[in-house]
């Protein structure tokens, strides 16, 4: 953990990988349909490795494992890692443990984008990218950009506080537009609500392949920035006196974290609390240095969302529980716990 024992850091890395691997395996093995656990593992090995194995599953079962379960697990890992790591970055940049990746308007912007797409029937496009996903992505980035412009206009120093306030204003504005549109188009209300609750219900490999390159690159970049966040923890002024170009670094980190969040939101809707509670849990357990929090958030977020999705699809089988309900169900009590423990300090 500390700068000194590299072995300790290696152990945590191994533990993180093991957690992700365990969550993924559980997600693969368990599901609403009764398929032999061993069979799912053998089938996955057959598909993912160059070797050929006979899983002994029926064609339908093979298809369920490969086309439905695996991509869902994979997307859960990617979305969870993205939201948690973006959350860790936001918390570091704003020096606020209650910051989450939706703070600067990603959620409201994505929501408006998705609503516009539903209302105009842009969904289900033939191309690689679904209209709703694209609109949500663009909407999310537009909202963050607007937050930035408003925040900087109000405060030349681009302080964290003015950005947060701008984020609140922009989010309210976008939410108002979104609600107006939704009320004018009540026939689309079901689709809109479903999107807002977030979920991986009908995710396939195409969503995984869309998010994968973006997530891998941005997660790698962010995993290197923990030290920078640690420097920022001493405040803008002192960090600047330590040689850090605070305003530029802040823009850079927020752009990366927001891109990552927007990409995750585009394929999975608004999944609440992951970006807030996962980095915070990591902080409580492993201490508050970001060079530990950021990389561990990748693993913790991936595993947490994969497990949440497992709960979402199995608890009330064969119906789905919106994943936002699962994450909030565990998230809300945790939130109170955070408030109590941080209040003590």
């Amino acid at each position: 953990m500390d700068a000194r024992p590299t072995t300790a850091r290696f152990i945590w890395l191994v533990a993180g990988v093991a957690f992700v691997f365990g969550a993924a395996t559980l997600g693969l093995v368990l599901g609403p349909t009764d398929i032999s656990s061993w069979g799912t593992i053998v089938e996955t090995a057959d598909r993912l490795t160059p070797f050929t194995f006979d899983s002994g599953l029926s064609e339908t079962q093979k298809s369920i494992v490969w086309n439905l379960r695996l991509p869902r697990v994979a997307l859960g890992l990617l979305v969870g890692a993205s939201l948690a790591t973006a959350g860790a970055t936001y918390q570091g940049v704003f020096r606020n443990p209650l910051a989450d990746p939706y703070l600067l308007g990603v959620a409201a912007g994505g929501g408006l984008g998705a609503t516009v797409a539903f209302v105009n029937d842009w969904g289900n496009g033939e191309g690689v990218f679904d209209g709703v996903q694209l609109a949500a992505f663009v909407g999310a980035l537009l909202a963050v950009a607007l937050t930035w412009i408003v925040g900087v206009a109000g405060d030349r120093d681009r302080s964290a506080a003015s950005l947060i306030l701008a984020g609140v204003a922009v989010a309210s504005f976008f939410t108002a537009l979104q609600t107006f549109l939704q009320q004018r188009n009540t026939e689309d209300i079901r689709e809109i609500y479903t999107w807002f609750l977030g979920g991986l219900t009908t995710s396939g490999w195409s969503e995984v392949l869309q998010l994968l390159p973006v997530a891998v690159v941005l997660l790698l970049v962010l995993s290197l920035t923990g030290r920078t966040l640690d420097i920022m923890a001493v405040g803008d002024e002192e960090a600047s006196m330590l040689g850090l170009a605070v305003p530029q670094v802040r823009v850079g980190l927020l752009v990366i974290a927001s891109l990552l969040t927007a990409a995750a939101v585009a394929v999975s809707g608004l999944i609440a609390f992951v970006g807030l509670i996962v980095p915070h849990a990591v902080r409580l357990i492993f201490g508050s240095t970001f060079r530990v929090i950021v990389p561990l958030s990748i693993f913790a977020g991936a595993g947490f969302l994969a497990l949440s999705d497992l709960a979402a699809r199995t608890i009330l089988t064969p119906t789905e529980i919106p994943i936002g309900v699962i994450t909030a169900f565990f998230g809300a009590p945790f939130f109170i716990f955070i408030l109590r423990t941080t209040g003590r300090r």
């Binding site: 599901g31 609403p32 349909t33 339908t60 079962q61 298809s63 369920i64 439905l68 379960r69 029937d121 969904g123 289900n124 026939e187 689309d188 689709e191 479903t194 219900t201 009908t202 699809r313 089988t317 064969p318 119906t319 789905e320």
Partner: peptide, 27 residues
């Protein structure tokens, strides 16, 4: 009005599928 799990549906393998989302969702 439940939301079905996709895996369950594929496993249940219905004989016939009725699409009442040809307008809303262009299916």
């Amino acid at each position: 009005y439940p939301q079905l799990n996709e895996e369950y549906l594929v496993d249940a393998d219905p004989d016939v599928i009725f699409l009442a989302d040809t307008r809303c969702c262009a299916q």
